[in-house]
Each structure stands twice: as C-alpha cells, then as structure tokens.
Nucleic acid binder design. Structure first.
Length: 1056
RNA sequence: GGGCCUGUAGCUCAGGUGGUAAGAGCGCACGCCUGAUAAGCGUGAGGUCGAUGGUUCAACUCCAUCCAGGCCCA
C-alpha cells in the first residue's frame, strides 16, 4: 500500500486524462460500474443514435456530457445503469454524402450506378465515421457501451421495425393516401421540411389576375389571383372566405365588352384594380358558395363535379383579390379543400416535372416554363385581367436550385391523430427540462398533430414491408424475416439483406386473385421511424430479449438537443403511446445550441466551428465538460469560448489541485494516513465543524439539484464549496498543519481536510470524471478507507445531517463580511495588514449578530490583525441610525399613503428613532392624519459611528482605530522582519521544516523592535537563535524596512 | 406570416410567489501575501436591469406593444 500521497506541483490535464483512460480500460472500470450494481435498481437511459454522416462537433460534447453525468450520478447512487450506444445509419443525409463521393446526383444517376452498389457504399460510409465518434466518445469520457451498439441497418433491427409496422397495419393504423409534398422533379423525390428550409430564395414570379365567368350570369366574372399560372390547368374550384365582404362592380374607364362586364372580388382588395369602378352590390362571401363558373381549360376531364365556389377560412385579404384559385394537386391547403369538398384531383404533371402529352399546348414542357404560354392563352381567351411580376420567397431544391413543386405523392401514413389525446395526456407525466418545452413547443406540436407521413422514395433505409398484388391490389404487410422467407419462398439458409434492392426482388403469386404477383411497394420508411423504434429494436424485441426489454422500458432519462422536439422526442413518444400506451421516457433534458463566441450559429460555411478533439487535447475533457455545464443551464444556448474553459481550469481545477497539494505536502511530512480513529465532528474545532457543515450542505444541495436534473446549479454549488475550502478553510488553518506534534487539533485538521477532498472527488465525478478519479485514488490509495479502486465504483457521499449547522454557517459568513469591511478600511487608510492595530468598533448590533461576532472574534481579529473589538452602545451618543420603512408590512396597510410615509421616515430625527426604539411605537402626523408605526414597521438599515471612518455593508458597519502606538509600531516592524527572513529562507532553498539561526544588523529603533518581539520572530521563522552581529551564514541580504535599513544573515542548523 | 426562447456591469452569468438603495466570476485599477508559490488574497471603479406604455402605494420581477438575437414551423 502506498504510504505517501502523490504530490503534483503542476498537472498537464490532457495527459493525466489519457493515463486515466488507459487505466479504466485495463481495469474495466466502466464494466465494473455496471456489474457491481447487479441487483440494484435499474436506471434506464436511452442513447439517441447520432447520424454518423459527419465528424462530431463541439455541440455533441455538450449533449454527451449531459447524458454521461446523469448516468454517472445514478451509478454513484447505487443504480445499475445500462447504456447501449446506437447508430442511426439510414436516410437521405447518408445518401447525399455518398453521392458527393461518387460525384453523382439524383435518383436516375443512382439507379444507373446500381442500387446494390450504392447502398453498399452507404453502409461503408457510415461505418467509416463511426470510428471518429467512438474516439470522441472515449476521449471525452462518455461512458456508453460501444462494444455492442444497436445499428439501425442491421437485419435484426429492421426486423423489429417490420414487426412494429405489422402491428400498426393490423390495427388499421397504417394506411395509404396522397399527400402534397414539396417535391423536386430533378431529384425525383419529396424533400423533408428541413431540406425545404435550406432552399428559400427570393424570386420573381408572375402575378396574374384572371377572370372566371359565372355560368348563370355570363356577364359577371370572378376575379382570382395566382402566382403559378401553370396550375390553372388543374383548377377545380375558387375559394372565398364566408365572412369576408365581397362586391360586384363595374369598371368605369370604358374597357370591357358591350355586355357591360361586371367583376366580383373582396371589398378589402379593391385597390388592386388600379382603375375607377362603380360598386353595384355588397355581400358576404358565404352567399357565393356553390356558384358555378366556366373552366378556363378543358384538357382534363374531371371525374366528378367541380368548377364551383367553395368557402375556406384560410382566404385572406393580405394579397390577391380575396378569391383563391384552387388546384388540389399543387397545394396542401388546396388538397385539403379538395378532400373536404369531394373535388377531383387533376394532375397533368409527370414525375419529371413536365406536362403530359394531352395538354397539347404545353406537352412536354417543364412546369415552370409553361407560365408564359398559359398567360398567352388567357389573353387570347380574354380572361386575363392583368399580368405583372411579383417578388417573393419560394422554396427551391437546395441541391439543384430548381423551384420545388408541391406535388401529390402516393404515401403511407401512420394514423397518429387517433392517439392525439392520449399522447397529450401522457406527455403531461413527463418531466421536461426546461419545463416550457413540454407544455410549449412539444405540447403544441402534439395538439396540432397530423398523421405521420412515413414513406420516402429513396434507396438507403428500412424498406416498407408491404407487398401489393399488381393485378387485384391485395395487400400484405410482413412482420418478420420468417414471414419473408415463407411468402417469398426462400430457404432458411439463404443469406438475407433486408435492404433494397434485394427485398424488391422478392415476390410471389397473389393468394387472392392468383393471377397477379405480389410486389413490394417502392417506399422506404422515414428514418425517424428507425430512431423512434429504438427502445424495442435495440433489443430485437419481440424476437429476443423480451425480459431485457421489459426491464428497460420506458427510459428514466434521455437527453438531446431542441432540434429533436419534432424528431426523436416525438417519434419515441408516438410509438410508445401507440404500441404500449406508455411514455417512452420519464425525464428529458433538452439542450440548446452551442454558438460561437459572438452568439452566431456554428456552421461549416461560416468557418466558425470548433473541433472538439482540439479543445479536449488543449484543455482536457474535464475542464471542457465542466465549462459546458457550469456556464449556463444546458437548455440555454451557450456562447462557446475557450477563454471560458481556461477560466474554469484556473479558477476551479487549479484551486482544487492546490488544496489537494497542500494537504499532500503536509500529510506526507507528518505521515498522516488516516489510521487513527475518526474524531467525532462535534469534538473538532469550530473551523472544522464549519467546513464540514458547508460540505454536508453542499452534498445535500448537489444531490437535490442532480435529482432534479439541474446540473448547472449542482456544479455552481460545488464551485462555491471549493472556493471556501481553499480560500478560507485552508488559508485560515495553515498553521494547524505546521505544528510539530500530532495533537488532536492537528489530527482533526487532517481528517477534516481529507474528508472534504474525498467527498469533493465524488461530487465532481459525474461532471469531471478524470480529475475526480485522480483525486479519489490519490486519497484513497493511501488510507484505504473505502474498498473501491475507482471513484466511479464508489457511492455518493451520505449527508451527515448532524454535521450541518446553519447557525455556524451564518456566523462564519458574517465574520467574513466583517473582515472584508476592515480590510477595506485598511486599504483606504493605507495601512497594510502586517501592521497590527489596536481596536475596531462595531455599533451595537442586534443580539444574535453581536453574539455571532463575539463567537468569531478570534478569527476576525487574527485575519485583520487587530487586537480588540469594541461595541459602541446607543447611549454613547455616537451611533447614528438610518431607518427605512418595512414596505412589505406597511405597503398593504397604508396603500396610497405609503409614499408619503416613506418620505417622512427617511427624514426622521435621531431622537424620534430613539423614541421608536425604546417605546416600540411612533406616531406620525401626515396631512393632519395620525399614523401609528409599531415595532417591526421600521428597519434599521445602517448605523454610523460619529467621527469615525466607517465602512458599511447593509446593516453591518465597522469603524477602525488607526492609531499606531510605538508598541504597535514595534510589532509591525517585527512582522516586516519575519517577512524578509521568510523571503530569504525561500531564496536559500530551505525545506519548510529546517531550523535556522538569524543574525542581523539594524538601527536602534528596529533593533529594539526585533529584540522586543524575539520570541514571536523565532517562532515564525523556526529560528533557534536570533542575535545582532553578522557571523558565518548561508545567505546575507540587505533590506529596507519602512524607513530603516537592515542586514540579515541566515544559517541552516538542521536538515529535516 | 405563426409559435416559442433569450436580452441584467466591457465579457460570461445569478437574481422563489412584485417590496425599494441590483449580485458573482473574469477582465481592468490599486494594493497585499510569500511555509499551496510559473500559485494565492484583498479592495475598488464599472449597470437608466433591451425600448416604450400600462397595472400597482411599490416592477428587473406582472401585462401590452415594439426592437434585437436565436430556435422551430409555414
């Protein structure tokens, strides 16, 4: 067993962390942190699988620190915390990455390249990035099981998805329908909303006002407006707002035909006419509903009635004419109206974006290019009222730059709307951090739930396991590999890949009509389905691990970024509610963005990204993690700056390291190894009881904050404790460690400091796992008080309730305030702390405060180098009080008179205040009205001492007697002398325990001072001899002490 | 365009349920200490609490509007 505490003057944290990483690996500490909790309560964490299609960024360190710290915290609390890593491997982003690599683009080129080969590249590309992620995971100290991660492209994972899809299908929750989606004809696929967001551009589009002739009154026209003339071919209705006011009018400038043409439009939009007109009639939109009009074009033959006016709430008067042209094929709102009104869907656009042959005038023309022709035709017809251009933002394909088409895509949907209420209800049982996301963003998202559009017409993803007969339309949804083999007639031995194109090739004769062939639909499943199914698929449920799944569902805790609100958080929740009528997670911490130091979003194009590997290599994972957690609550955006990390390192880690080093230095000198019995806290000196009280208060607070998923407050509480431990406890107690014997007092000091450091190691271990490990092992390896070889196998410190003494904590805080005031006074008076002063004065405080100061007098006096505290009583006539009203009490009672009373109180005479104090009440006359102030109605906010230099902090006031008597002067000089000797000891390189002899030459006053303080000087400098007259010496120096010159020589007598 | 979040000292952040002279760390200035020493400590100067209006005896804290930044959605 090691007998000495390791001493580390300065540490290179990154190097230290690297050592600890290998030590963890070699001793399987992570594995042990789980296996030693066998039988403990399970704490279930779900890892949201990262999409492994790029290098990890600094924001991933943020998310993973949160995940890691709560898992480590629960482990410390004795829970068994399994954490399986996972990889989200499918989806468009992966495909795009591969397209770039291959230098190809779009579905055609991919098909030409070969789906099999393409998907093989996708699989390979994803695995390549996995290594980078694993490295970061390991280096930052994120403990998660990387050995057996779930991978979404594996057959077993996909098989669970198929099982789920079959469950939904059989319950009628999976259905087929049209959906109008932003579609890029060049890509040949719909774009996700995220992609659409990437491609908004300002463009000039036609702005066209068109006449529609009413069937019953041929001289009356409805005036509609559109920016997409090419969709007029597909027009089936015109929408008006039922409650808006519309007008029938006649133009007055002679234009128009002999039949005296009339127009109808919204009154609020008349200004667009730009011409004189005469209003003939006003009416509400609802009156127009049902009116029939003549179609503009008849290329397409609708299969049901159309070309009539319908009512729609979305019609606005912001632009246009208040009459909206409806083409259900090319707009989501249009589509919905079409559904509601039973209108036909006329779609003459082929998937490649060109018009069908039967639209003779624009056959084969690119949809956007048809605008011009259509406008020309309208003009010929006489139905064009006006055409101009209009600048607005319109989505474009972010890859091709082509305008997107809102286009009906044959899709599969999950009927999530059937579970809306239940999803909302169960969401209320989830603890969200911050709370607002659960009730706000997420809650609203659930309230406005629409069916989940599941299909994607792509290549690399989970195939939708639905086969349809090409003749009779019979459907079959498969739910397992076994079924696939059975229906597909595959032998049990045959190797399978559940991806395209292999599954596409599997078909069988239709069992219903027996003439057709069952073929798979071409769709893939939305990748969000992959990750949302992770609670089940990670276990290959229900094909395997049924017990493991049950023991780990739902999750106790997950953590991801805000961007997952409508992503993973939603899909997890939706699937859990639909499949198991349960939440998927009980607690969720949502982290904000990591911005650059100017508050701008990090992005590759801006070039302001931060490489997490570089940061960690430079400053260490601990400091980085601590900074990310302590700087601001994780759910706020953080402005990332390496200066912040450096500050954490200096202010927190170096302080803690120094404290430990101090302990190790003296413990080694004294051979302290904590072998003797623990001194009961109650028997230790007050200082020890104080810091132990603070320690236990801190443990309690940190435990509470972490329990409550508020890591920032936990970290800040620890920071405050470490500051006090170092800058007050250690500083105030240094002398106790210098004594030569091992009396109970010194032992208590060692035990106290040891206990503080050991507990601190545990407290910081969730956030700073490396330094915590170093600290814990350095301490525990020597004492062997705990049986654990790693802090991560230890248990969270138990709160010693009896050690918490809040009165003592208050008292010490008060003492520190008094000290601070005196130091401020010394500063102002220009008297340094080495110069002793005779007394300080305190106006009589309220009894508790006075008692507290009295109990702390030794500490206070020693710290400020003053000899006595005197209290100035009221009857001295020196105390001048300032009072203010107790607003909280008086406000409700006085109401509007409060202001006047406050003013009166402010100018109260000292006599009046004295009367109030002695009699317990005071009568004020305000505007002839009597107001009685009773005990408690006034607060003394300040007491000054007349004629003295005072310093105040709230109700606390201190005055200092700055008279320096000859005796005080001598003491001050002696201190200066000691100070010079200590400098010389250091310069001579003596050990702190070496005994010395001092010889000196000084003028009469200084010599007298030195001689009168000889005992003090010798004690402070470990000098066995102190004499005037220079003899043989190790070191001689000349000094100026105040106005005196002085020569000092020192010689070492013993070597320790 | 809709929803949500944020806006407190030069910088990063604290400031239950409204109560009256707004706090910390860093940086800066000045000083101290030298038996934790390529550390440490103290003191000090810095703020119309984004803007405007309102509610109230009282608003950084509540309400409304606006401005700026951000996120999500259209």
């Amino acid at each position: 067993m090691a007998r000495r505490f390791a001493e580390a003057k300065s540490l290179h944290y990154p190097a230290l962390e690297a050592e600890i990483l290998s030590w963890w690996d070699a001793n399987r500490i992570f594995e042990q942190s789980i296996s030693t909790r066998e039988g403990g309560v399970e704490f279930t964490f779900y890892e949201g699988p990262p999409t492994a299609n790029g290098r990890p960024g600094i924001h991933h360190v943020m998310a993973r620190t949160i995940k890691d710290l709560f898992c480590r915290y629960r482990t410390l609390k004795g829970y068994r915390v399994l954490r399986k890593a996972g990889w989200d491997t499918h989806g468009l982003p992966v495909e795009i990455e591969v397209e770039k690599e291959l230098g190809i683009q779009g579905r055609e080129q991919i098909e030409r390249f070969g789906i099999a080969a393409f998907n093989a590249r996708c699989r390979e590309s994803v695995l390549r990035y996995k290594n980078e992620w694993d490295q970061l995971t390991r280096r930052m100290g994120y403990w998660v099981d990387l050995q057996s991660p779930y991978i979404t492209f594996e057959n077993r994972y996909i098989e669970t998805l198929w099982w789920i899809l079959q469950q939904l299908y059989e319950r009628g929750l999976l259905y087929r329908g049209y959906k109008i989606q932003p579609y890029c004809p060049r890509c040949g696929t719909a774009l996700s909303s995220h992609e659409v967001g990437l491609g908004y551009e300002e463009v000039d589009d036609p702005s066209v006002y068109v006449r529609f002739r009413l069937r019953e009154r041929p001289n009356v026209h409805l005036l509609a407006w559109t920016t997409t003339p090419w969709t007029l071919i597909s027009n089936v209705a015109l929408a008006v707002h039922p409650e808006l006011t519309y007008v029938r009018l006649r133009l007055l400038d002679g234009e128009g035909d002999p039949e005296r043409e009339e127009l109808i439009m919204a009154e609020a939009r008349l200004s667009v006419l730009g011409r004189p007109y005469e209003v003939l009639e006003r009416f509400e939109g609802r009156r127009m509903v049902g009116w029939a009009y003549e179609p503009l074009f008849t290329y397409l033959q609708p299969d049901r009635p159309c070309w009539r006016v319908v009512g729609a709430e979305f019609v606005s008067t912001e632009e246009g004419t208040g009459i909206v042209h409806i083409a259900p094929a090319f707009g989501e709102e249009d589509f919905e109206i079409g559904q509601r009104e039973g209108l036909p869907l006329l779609n003459p656009i082929r998937p490649d974006g060109t018009f069908e042959e039967r639209i003779t005038d624009v056959a084969g023309v690119w949809f956007k290019d048809a605008d011009r022709t259509i406008i020309g035709l309208l003009r010929q017809q006489g139905n064009l009222f006006r055409a101009e251009t209009y600048r607005h933002s319109y989505p474009h394909c972010w890859r091709h730059g082509t305008p997107l088409l809102y286009y009906p895509v044959d899709s599969w949907f999950i009927r999530t709307t059937a579970f809306k209420d239940r999803m909302v209800e169960l969401n209320r049982t989830i603890r969200w951090r911050p709370e607002g996301i659960g009730s706000g963003r997420f809650g609203q998202w659930l309230e406005h739930n629409v069916d989940w559009s599941l299909s994607r017409r792509r290549f690399w993803g989970t195939p939708l396991p639905i086969w349809i007969c090409d003749r009779c339309g019979a459907e079959r949804c498969l739910g397992s590999i076994e079924e696939l083999r059975r229906y597909g007639g595959l032998s049990p031995e045959q190797e399978l890949d559940l991806h395209r194109p292999y599954v596409d090739e599997i078909s069988w004769p239709c069992e219903r009509c027996s003439e057709g062939t069952m073929r798979r639909v071409p769709d893939l499943v939305d990748v969000w389905f992959d990750s949302g199914a992770m609670p089940y698929a990670q276990w290959h449920y229900p094909f395997e691990n049924r017990e493991a799944f049950r023991a780990h569902f739902p999750a106790d805790f997950i953590a991801e970024g805000v961007d997952q609100t409508r992503g993973w958080f939603y899909t997890l929740h939706a699937l859990a509610v639909m499949l198991f009528d349960s939440v998927a997670f009980r607690n969720v911490v949502v982290n904000g963005l990591v911005l650059d130091e100017h508050g701008e979003k990090m992005s590759k194009s801006r070039g302001n990204t931060v490489d997490p590997f570089e940061v960690i290599e430079a400053y260490g994972a601990d400091a980085t993690r601590w900074y990310l957690i302590a700087n601001s609550p994780p759910w706020e955006n953080i402005r990332f700056s390496v200066r912040g990390i450096q500050e954490v390192q200096r202010r927190f880690f170096n302080t803690l390291l120094n404290t430990y080093n101090f302990f190790a230095l003296y413990a080694n000198i004294d051979g302290f190894t904590y072998q003797s019995a623990r001194i009961p806290v109650g028997s230790r000196p007050e200082m020890d009881r104080w810091i132990l009280s603070r320690l236990n208060s801190t443990i309690k607070a940190v435990d509470g904050y972490l329990e409550d998923y508020d890591p920032t407050r936990a970290a800040r509480a620890i920071e405050a404790f470490v500051e006090e431990l170092s800058n007050w406890y250690v500083r105030r107690n240094r002398r106790r460690f210098w004594k030569s014997d091992m009396a109970p007092d010194k032992l208590a000091a060692y035990q106290t400091l040891y206990e503080c450091l050991l507990s601190t190691a545990k407290l910081i271990s969730p956030i700073a796992p490396f330094f915590a490990e170093w600290l814990y092992r350095n301490l525990n390896e020597v004492t062997r008080l705990e049986p654990y070889e790693s802090v991560h196998l230890a248990l969270f410190p138990a709160v010693e309730e009896t050690a918490i003494d809040s009165v003592l904590e208050y008292r010490m805080a008060l003492a520190r305030r008094v000290v601070s005031l005196v130091l401020s006074l010394r500063n102002r008076a220009g008297i340094n702390v080495r110069q002793p002063l005779r007394r300080m004065l305190l106006p009589r405080l309220h009894p508790e405060a006075r008692a507290a100061v009295e109990q702390m007098r030794e500490v206070i006096l020693d710290e400020v180098n003053v000899k006595t505290i005197e209290y100035v009583d009221d009857d001295s006539g020196l105390v001048r009080k300032t009072v203010k009203p107790n607003f909280r009490l008086l406000g409700p009672r006085l109401g509007a008179r409060m202001k006047a009373v406050a003013e009166a109180v402010r100018t109260l005479s000292p006599e009046a205040i004295a009367r109030y104090e002695t009699q317990g009440q005071l009568e004020l006359i305000l505007n002839g009205e009597s107001i009685l102030l009773q005990r408690g109605d006034l607060e003394i906010i300040r007491e000054d001492i007349a004629g003295w230099l005072v310093e105040s902090d709230g109700e606390l006031t201190v005055a200092l007697d700055t008279t320096i008597t000859p005796e005080l002067r001598a003491e001050g000089l002696a201190r200066e002398f000691v100070n010079r000797v200590q400098h010389m000891r250091k310069e001579a390189g003596y050990a702190v325990t070496d005994r010395i002899a001092i010889a000196f030459e000084a003028d009469a006053e200084l010599q007298a001072a030195i001689e009168s303080q000889a005992a003090y000087i010798q004690q402070e400098t470990l000098a066995e001899a102190l004499q005037s007259g220079i003899g043989p010496a190790d070191l001689v120096r000349d000094w100026d002490i105040e106005a005196h010159t002085c020569r000092i020589a020192i010689r070492r007598l013993t070597t320790s």
